[in-house]
Amino acid sequence: MEKNLEDIFQDKIDREIRIEPKDWMPEKYRQTLIRQISQHAHSEIVGMLPEGNWITRAPSLRRKSILLAKVQDEAGHGLYLYSAAETLGITRDEMYEQLHSGRAKYSSIFNYPTLSWADMGAIGWLVDGAAIMNQVPLCRASFGPYARAMVRVCKEESFHQRQGFEILLTLSRGNEAQKNMAQDALNRWWWPSIMMFGPTDDESPNTIQSMRWKIKRFTNDELRQKFVDICADQVKILGLTLPDKDLTWNETRGHYDFGPINWDEFWQVVSGNGPCNRDRLNARKKAWEDGAWVREAASAYAEKKKSEQKVA
């Protein structure tokens, strides 16, 4: 019987029929999605922190309004994704608990510090650019609520990347110090950004199953290569360089070759030893704990109003 259900399920996937929350699904499919969607949600929420750092110091009112809107979008994206994960049977509080206890991961890119204003440009262009590259295929993910959330996210995300590129473009056309600031930001953000696509295909054992279930549509290395190709061209418009001396166009492959990625660094950051891991988690925990009285007060107020209505 079990086998039969699994065949029916895979057949639906193969025919591009979306899976909805109440449909039968293999337990591993459910668990894979819960892990992936909640990590994605956590990344949006933690991802507000490095940029929040610069809201009060944005160089103009225009830039401040834009950055505020972007950070607000990220809060929204986190909420879309948490809701999508909840349809699979995990509660919001369970997900928060997993984040706060360190059991759940989030994108390791957010464990790097934002040292200058140019970092807002580099994050928009590179970090959001890499995120979009990952997210666009997820709009066709086999699980309906996830795909629908991603459609919404992708629609909103494209201004994030454009505003980042515009920041870098402005700096690159500025004075020497501004240009150096932009270059310095690229030097620090480039490698962590291309690590965002995750381990290489031969180190990524779950990819095959995720592709069979049509959660993933492309492998990590495919997406990474696409991203490198696009950035290697766009950086020329900025008149800046990417910090990789091996970055060269390969005529036979039709792609840019790039240098070796420092996977030691990647795994160090993933396992909690990046420059800001502790700060980020502490900030989230503090926000959760400091907000406890607000949550309780709102619940108490709602209860009180309900009982008043019953009396009246």
């Binding site: 607000q72 929204g76 879309y80 809701s83 909840e86 959330a149 919404r152 949550r295 709102a298 709602a302």
Partner: peptide
């Protein structure tokens, strides 16, 4: 369009506006 958590209907509408 989706779902969200709120303590009561009024808060749900306000949060839906923002989300």
């Amino acid at each position: 369009v989706g779902s969200l958590h709120a303590a009561d209907a009024q808060m749900a509408i306000e949060n839906a506006r923002d989300v």
